[in-house]
Every structure is written in structure tokens, then in C-alpha cells.
């Protein structure tokens, strides 16, 4: 057999192995969506019916139009995630620029503090934040969720890494021209750093959308619930309604899957360029 033929066979075998592995990765998602279109008795039929015999929208109808309506949870989550992301990107990119590109006294000390705070487990902040939010009158409001989201430490860290990789001459030339840092940030850096910023907008949005623990701790009223809390609530109310549970789970991942499909290239390249290089 020719060398080329051998190579092709190797490539086929490897592709098959990788496809098998990739199937394991997406089976829980496929299972989720497929179950959401089943009737209760069909859920655990064996061998598994990946395509339900008589697909039904019943479970989805229950999720979207039932007593626990997901439209409300969606609105709440969307509001928190959008406000939080806009803040995180604005304040985060400014701080990242300051730490990466401006010389000022105490810079390394302050940035060291950020690195230290990255180690802090969020659970250590539960009780003190609970007390502080209670004092400030924002406990059991959406403010308790989106305000902290607006200040991302990890985002500052990654965006700074990226700003460091942009050529130094860029800043120097513009400074000599007399452009202030604010002009430079707006006119030169933001356009250049657009891919990174889009990446972090997507990631921040994803994290805020999936944030379950803060919602669990800081929200009481069912009217204020976000999607992950609503999902949990669904389980408490209808514990063995498996198609319903999976329809609720499917509803909760739709925006993330959409964002991923459209922003895949950004997410992957952005993550790589800010953690590997620089």
C-alpha cells in the first residue's frame, strides 16, 4: 500500500475514535433534548429511543405556559446577565488597560491583590454579602446579583494578558503625538482588542446566565427567580416529571448554545490567546 493510502486509513481510524469520544461528550445533551419530547413511560424505555416514537410538545408547553413560567425567569436572567456583562466589560477593559499600559505608583501591588482575590472561594463571601446587602436594602433584589457581576477579577486578569501582547510602539507613538490615554484607549485599543472583548462579553454572559449559587443565596421571591433557580424549583415541584424536567433544562441552555454557535471562533481563540500567549 502506498504511503498516502496508509495515511488516509490512519486518518479515518483516528476520526472514528474521535467521533466516538465526541459522542460521549454530547450524549447528555442529546438525552436531555430527546427526553423533553417524550411521554413519561417512554423515558426509560430500553434500548433507548433517541428519537421518540410520537414526539410531543407537552413538556415544553408546561415549561413555558405552566404555573412556573419560564418567560418570567428568562426575563430576570436576561436582565441580570446583560447589565452584569455590560458593566464587567466596561470596567474590566478599563482596568485591564490601566494595569497593562499605564505606569502608576502601586500598580503591581494592586494587581497582586487581584491575583490573591482570584483564590478566594465565592462561598467565603456568602455570609458577609448577605449582611451587607441586607443593610443596603438590596437583599432579595436583582441588584444583589448584577452589581457584583459588573466587577470581574478574572476578566481583568485575562484582558490584561491580552493588552500586554499588543505592540508597545502603539502606545509610545501615540503618547508622543500628545494623545491622552483616554483617546488612545478609545480610538486604538478598543478597536484592536475587539475579539478579546467579545470573548469576555460572551463568557461573562454565560457565567452570569448560569450563576446558580448567588441566586440561591440572595433571592427569595419566586417572582425574582432566575433560570437556574426556576429550573431547581421545577424539580422540587414536579420531582418525577422527567420530560418536564428535561424540557426545563433544555429551555435553560438554549441561549448559551446559540451564543456558542455564533461566537465559537471568538471564545476559543480568545481563551487561548489570553491564557497561553503573553
Amino acid at each position: 500500500m502506498t504511503r498516502n493510502g496508509k495515511q488516509n486509513i490512519g486518518q479515518m481510524v483516528l476520526t472514528l475514535i474521535m467521533i466516538a469520544a465526541a459522542l460521549i461528550m454530547i450524549i447528555p445533551l442529546v438525552w436531555m433534548i430527546s427526553t423533553s419530547f417524550k411521554t413519561q413511560p417512554e423515558v426509560f424505555a430500553y434500548p433507548v429511543k433517541w428519537l421518540p416514537e410520537r414526539p410531543t410538545w407537552e413538556a415544553h408547553r408546561k415549561v413555558w405556559l405552566g404555573a412556573l413560567n419560564f418567560v418570567k425567569y428568562y426575563r430576570n436572567s436576561l436582565k441580570i446577565a446583560v447589565l452584569g456583562t455590560v458593566g464587567a466589560i466596561t470596567f474590566g477593559s478599563m482596568a485591564a488597560y490601566g494595569f497593562a499600559r499605564v505606569q502608576f505608583r502601586g500598580r503591581n501591588l494592586l494587581f497582586g491583590l487581584y491575583l490573591l482575590l482570584m483564590m478566594v472561594p465565592p462561598q467565603i463571601l456568602f455570609v458577609p454579602k448577605f449582611i451587607m446587602f441586607d443593610w443596603a436594602g438590596i437583599y432579595n433584589t436583582h441588584w444583589a446579583l448584577f452589581l457584583p457581576t459588573m466587577f470581574t477579577i478574572i476578566g481583568v486578569f485575562y484582558m490584561r494578558q491580552h493588552f500586554l501582547t499588543l505592540p508597545k510602539e502603539l502606545t509610545e507613538a501615540a503618547i508622543i503625538d500628545g494623545a491622552g490615554h483616554f483617546t488612545m484607549f478609545r480610538k486604538i485599543f478598543l478597536p484592536l482588542a475587539k475579539p478579546t472583548i467579545v470573548t469576555f462579553a460572551i463568557l461573562d454572559f454565560t457565567w452570569a446566565w448560569n450563576n446558580y449559587e448567588d441566586a440561591l443565596v440572595f433571592l427569595i421571591d419566586e417572582d425574582l427567580y432566575t433560570v437556574p433557580l426556576g429550573l431547581n424549583n421545577f424539580l422540587l415541584e414536579y420531582s418525577i416529571d422527567y420530560p418536564g424536567m428535561m424540557a426545563a433544562a433544555t429551555a435553560s441552555i438554549i441561549p448559551i448554545v446559540l451564543v456558542f454557535l455564533f461566537g465559537q471562533r471568538y471564545i476559543i481563540e480568545g481563551l487561548v490567546s489570553s491564557s497561553v500567549k503573553g
Binding site: I26, P228, M246, S252, F260
Partner: peptide
């Protein structure tokens, strides 16, 4: 397909694994 699970809500995917 290998990367997608990283972005999915832990609660949603937890329920799927439970079943």
C-alpha cells in the same frame, strides 16, 4: 462538541446526568 459542555449550566446538565 468537546468544548460545549464547559459552557453549559451545571444545574441543567446535572439533571440530565441524574436521569
Amino acid at each position: 462538541s468537546f468544548f460545549l459542555p464547559y459552557l453549559i449550566s451545571a444545574v441543567a446538565i446535572g439533571f440530565s446526568w441524574m436521569l
